[in-house]
């Protein structure tokens, strides 16, 4: 008897499979999404940092969203060095003027863009940072100059709340 109406039977089985597959996919999503940042992590506020006591030529490291942020108060030479570099010499061309709105202050994530290590201060061939993991050299603007890292160190969203306080995030 089943041979008489092959279309209906085919439709039934196809529909069952299709609807079942949609359901399975819908069930999988919550199981995947639960590993994404949760509401409390997403809500984690900005960090305010008092930089009043930082002297020129010094770097402080603060924690923001579980990552180190370098805040460097640059010397005049460092600024000059950073701003005189030619764009074509850069692996990842970015103007220092865009990276440090206030030239005295460089704020960036202290995370090597190669594989996520924390570079060392005042090291390397370009007077900036040097990543000990795989030998990436960054200049005084935190831009990648030599080594395996593909990008400059990331500048997060930040603002000066007042002359001595930086709000990151």
């Amino acid at each position: 008897m089943s041979d008489k109406k092959p279309e209906r039977r085919d439709f039934l089985f196809t529909a069952s499979y299709a609807v079942g597959a949609v359901g399975a996919a819908a069930v999988v999503w919550p199981l995947i999404d639960q590993m994404n940042p949760d509401a409390s992590v997403k809500a984690l506020a900005s960090t305010e940092v008092d930089v009043g006591s930082v002297k020129r030529g010094n770097t402080i490291t603060v924690l923001w969203r579980g990552k180190p942020v370098f805040i460097r108060r640059r010397t005049e030479e460092e600024i000059k060095e950073a701003r005189s570099v030619k764009m074509e010499d850069l692996i990842h061309p970015e103007k220092d003027e865009d990276r440090a709105k206030n030239p005295e202050w460089l704020v960036m994530l202290g995370v090597c863009t190669h594989l996520g290590c924390v570079p060392l201060n005042d090291k390397g061939d370009y007077d900036g940072w040097f990543c000990p993991c795989h030998g990436s050299h960054y200049d005084t603007s935190g831009r990648i100059r030599k080594g395996p890292a593909p990008l400059n160190m990331e500048v997060p969203k930040y603002e000066f709340v007042n002359a001595n306080t930086i709000k990151i995030g």
């Binding site: 919550p30 199981l31 999404d33 639960q34 994404n36 949760d38 509401a39 409390s40 992590v41």
Partner: peptide
Amino acid sequence: EHIMRDVNYGWLI
């Protein structure tokens, strides 16, 4: 409570 409130679909799981 964190699972119930904040984790994505935590309440469901």
